[in-house]
Design a protein around this nucleic acid. Structure first.
Length: 694
RNA sequence: GGACGGUUGGCUCAGUGGUAGAGCGCUGCGUUCACAUCGCAGAGGUCGCAGGUUCGAUCCCUGCACCGUCCACCA
């Protein structure tokens, strides 16, 4: 067969992927040979709103590399794919789509709106998985799950009821982060922070009196949010603050609201900030809420879910938006002489991670899940090593979060999501409540399915750094709670892909790189090569396209080495066992091959994909091509030909997990004695069983 | 504010207690016999700064500077 001089990924990749899919080998139930041990990995389900970014590509390349290697090593491999309904994210996407038609979700009503979301899901829900296929991901698409599948909904309800019956779920009015635009509460992890040039207002609170004018005695508090003073129920100072010690226990009159409130002592107050005296608004600030609980202060909710001032505040301010209220309050304070001074002040303002609206902390009835016991079981799993975490340093990060996590607010005021299975409840559940069940809900839990029996627990998982707490920890305690077993043996926090300048990749900043564009330009193998090549250890990756060029060149090198070997070994088949040869050069390359296989295995075991690839790249290019191939040109004996074929085919096996397309293509062309199966299920060269001669 | 990571040739990164390496880029030469997406040759680094340990430090320790990430968020 005459091969073209240059490797062309376009002509290969689509064809090869179809052959793989048709083989059925992505499904572990169809794998040839006896398979005793599992290697199961759950794909972190991408949002149905998403399209592939380099983080996904890195995740898929690394996971697929492991899966393919384990598959060849005789494991029962399952790479389980699926997608996440992603409550807020998806709802916002659809709302944006509606907005173009001049409609809001309330115009449609709940039912019609949800129909629209499902339409969206049908249309776009699978696109991202198609993009994973382009990368060569050998996931079992026949098992694909969505977090709103019927069976999955049952699992979510069962989990909720389990906690509910245990008394771990309760409804309470708590101060939560609230996005007034999305009209929903948000978890800590759904916030972003934006630096804002704000002001610090110093306000005089008259001491003791019943006066509505400023007297001689007053205490000054500093605040960035003067409008919340309408809901103040105390002024707090540090108990050790000598300036204010004499005032503790006395009262002040709250300007504008004309309420008498106490001066209390609390260690949460920082003496150095502002005047050392702080207004306490238990309804609209988290720290104040805590202070309020300690001192049994009443909570006056002056900002409503609509972002407007409530009737709890003085009549003048009713119905004002927060910003307007702030301006009016400042004006009134100024006119009445309560404002001492104003300073410029830069601070971070919490904003909604979806729509960037400033967050209002406010008391709202929400559902909570008690966390104490759950987090402690998860903590023990990490401490005992039953769940390993790589790199190891993230274990401490995980444990610290588990130690400090408050009860989990699991309700959201959205339309798109899992209904809380309590009659009359309109809210839906936090997306992460369903994601937390991913490793076993995908396998049919709470039914006792064969899949669950066979494939739970899983062996490995990877995710991005920022969802370690959001997702990973919650899967661990959910797995322990519902299955009695940790959901995976090891979690790898993979490097973050940054721009070459070391900045975060972001669509809005225009610093993102589209992997699909790169695939078109270089081919999927080169992308996988480039990404894996750059995973070298602890560091995040400053994505460098030159690694893709290196990959592309390497692929061409492999292609042409194969062309040469094919020409040079006509009428010879690939030997079944390593050739035995008298020639030193043959012995040397065969021995070196085995050494390099073992080194690759060792690097992969500690997830150093870059070093593994480098090791074999160097062997193949320099030792095999530059030296042995040149030497073999002088040889016509069978031993040389068998050695060429042996080293080449073995190299294809080793390289297949990294660059599956080209290796599979060449495997199909090489002269096998018997009709070969696919390379993806070929037997991994057992380096440990081979004699290493040097 | 808390925690963590990094600082090595033009760029992106490996690496080791004892003459410093790769890929990409660059320079020169070379196209009959796998590959010009190639071959050969080469230039290019006082391994962030300052101390310390050591016979010897790019590597170990301390401090500092700068870059970055995550977490928390302060009125």
């Amino acid at each position: 067969m005459e091969l073209p001089k240059a490797y062309n990924p376009m002509q290969t990749e689509e064809k090869i992927y179809r052959i793989w899919e048709k083989s059925g080998f992505f499904n572990p139930d169809n794998l040839p040979g006896k398979r005793r041990e599992n290697f199961v990995v759950m794909m972190p389900p991408p949002n149905i709103t998403g399209s592939l970014h380099l983080g996904h590509a890195l995740e898929a390349a690394a996971t697929d590399c492991l899966i393919r290697m384990k598959r060849m090593q005789g494991y029962r491999t399952l790479y389980f794919p699926g997608t996440d309904h992603a409550g807020i994210a998806t709802q916002n996407k659809v709302e944006k789509e509606l907005k173009k038609e001049g409609l809001g979700r309330h115009d449609l009503g709940r039912e019609k709106f949800l129909e629209r979301v499902w339409t969206w899901r049908e249309k776009y829900g699978g696109i991202i998985l198609e993009q994973f296929k382009k990368l060569g991901t050998s996931a079992d698409w026949s098992r694909q799950r969505f977090t709103m599948d019927k069976e999955y909904v049952k699992a979510v309800e069962a989990a909720f009821m389990h906690y509910y019956d245990k008394g771990w779920i309760y409804k309470g009015e708590r101060v939560v982060h609230f996005c007034t635009r999305c009209a929903t509460s948000l978890s800590d992890l759904e916030l972003e922070y934006k630096e804002e040039q704000g002001k610090l207002w110093y306000i005089k609170y008259p001491i003791g009196g019943q006066r509505s004018e400023v007297g001689n005695q007053y205490i000054v508090v500093a605040t960035t949010r003067p409008e919340t003073m309408l809901g103040d129920t105390a002024v707090a100072v540090h108990p050790d603050d000598t300036r204010y010690k004499a005032l503790i226990g006395k009262t002040v009159e709250l300007p504008l609201a004309e309420r008498i409130i106490p001066i209390i002592a609390d260690t949460a107050v920082e003496q150095e900030f502002g005047t050392g005296a702080v207004k306490v608004t238990p309804a609209h600030d988290f720290i104040d809420a805590n202070i309020g609980e300690r001192h049994e202060l009443s909570r006056i909710k002056i900002i409503g879910e609509d972002g407007r001032i409530t009737p709890e505040a003085p009549k003048k301010y009713h119905g004002m938006k927060v910003k307007e209220a702030r301006e009016t309050v400042v004006e009134d304070l100024t006119v009445k002489g309560f404002l001492e001074k104003t300073e410029d002040y830069t601070h971070n303002v919490a904003i909604c991670y979806r729509c960037e609206t400033p967050i209002e902390p406010l008391p709202s009835p929400q559902w909570f899940l008690k966390m104490k016991e759950l987090t402690q079981t998860a903590k023990r799993a990490y401490q005992s090593g039953r769940v390993r975490i790589a790199p190891e340093r993230f274990r401490q990060v995980a444990i610290e979060w588990l130690d400090n996590e408050r009860d989990w607010c699991i309700s959201r005021q959205l339309w798109w999501g899992h209904q809380i299975p309590i009659p009359g409840e309109k809210d839906v559940l936090d997306t992460w409540f369903s994601s937390a069940l991913w490793p076993f809900a995908t396998l049919g839990w709470p039914e006792k399915t064969k899949g669950l029996e066979t494939y739970y627990p899983t062996q490995w998982m990877t995710c991005a750094r920022e969802i370690l707490n959001l997702w990973i920890e919650r899967m661990v305690f959910s797995g322990l709670e519902f299955m009695g077993k940790e959901p995976y043996a090891e979690i790898w926090i993979h490097p973050t892909v940054l721009t070459k300048e070391g900045k975060r990749m972001s669509k809005s900043l225009g610093t993102g790189i589209d992997p699909l564009e790169l695939i078109r330009q270089y081919g999927a193998d080169a992308i996988r090569f480039g990404l894996l090549w750059q995973i070298t250890g602890l560091q995040d990756i400053k994505f460098d396209e030159s690694a893709l060029i290196a990959g592309k060149k390497f692929l061409n090198k492999i292609w042409n080495a194969a062309r040469f070997v094919l020409h040079h070994t006509e009428k010879i088949s690939i030997p079944e066992t390593p050739p035995i040869s008298e020639h030193k050069e043959d012995q040397k390359i065969l021995a070196s091959l085995n050494v390099h296989i073992s080194r690759v295995e060792k690097e992969i075991a500690i997830l150093r994909f870059g070093q593994a690839l480098e090791i074999f790249y160097s062997f193949f290019w320099h030792e095999f091509c530059d030296e042995y191939l040149e030497h073999a040109k002088q040889r016509t004996d069978v031993a040389a030909k068998e050695t060429l074929l042996w080293v080449l085919t073995t190299s294809l096996k080793i390289l297949h997990p990294f660059i599956p397309f080209i290796t599979e293509e060449l495997w199909g062309i090489l002269p096998h004695g018997n009709k070969p199966s696919l390379l993806m299920v070929a037997e991994w060269p057992a380096s440990s069983n081979l004699e290493i001669r040097d």
